[in-house]
């Protein structure tokens, strides 16, 4: 399975990573090489095998759905690159 330039552009956008037009070809080549490596998995007979979804068999604990903390607005915003009036500030989203 090989990735072409257009697929590389689409994957970069899916991952929300800006890639310059001239960097797309090398990116496609590099991703293709890794995908080729993954092709080995096609040799394995996986008929009737369940996917592994839990690492150690355990039942997830239940707990009461209640508020256990809060009033930490300052802490939440402490590391924000731009925080104003108690909110995260971002560029205008809606015109």
């Amino acid at each position: 399975m090989s990735i072409d330039k257009d697929t590389a552009r689409r994957v970069a956008h899916l991952a929300r990573i800006e890639v310059a037009e001239e960097a797309l070809e090398p990116l496609a080549a590099s991703l293709s090489k890794i995908l080729d490596f993954m092709e080995e998995l096609n040799e394995v007979d996986i008929d009737g095998v369940e996917p592994m979804t839990s690492v150690t068999p355990m039942e997830l604990k239940r707990r009461v759905d209640e508020v256990t903390d809060g009033n930490i607005q300052d802490k939440i915003l402490a590391n924000a690159p731009d925080a104003r009036e108690g909110f995260f500030a971002v560029p205008k989203v809606v015109e």
């Binding site: 998995l41 394995v44 996986i46 095998v49 369940e50 996917p51």
Partner: peptide
């Protein structure tokens, strides 16, 4: 083709 297959191979490895 990739993720689900890999998770099945993971079962076999375990």
């Amino acid at each position: 083709a990739y993720y689900l297959r890999a998770q099945k191979v993971r079962t076999l490895i375990r």
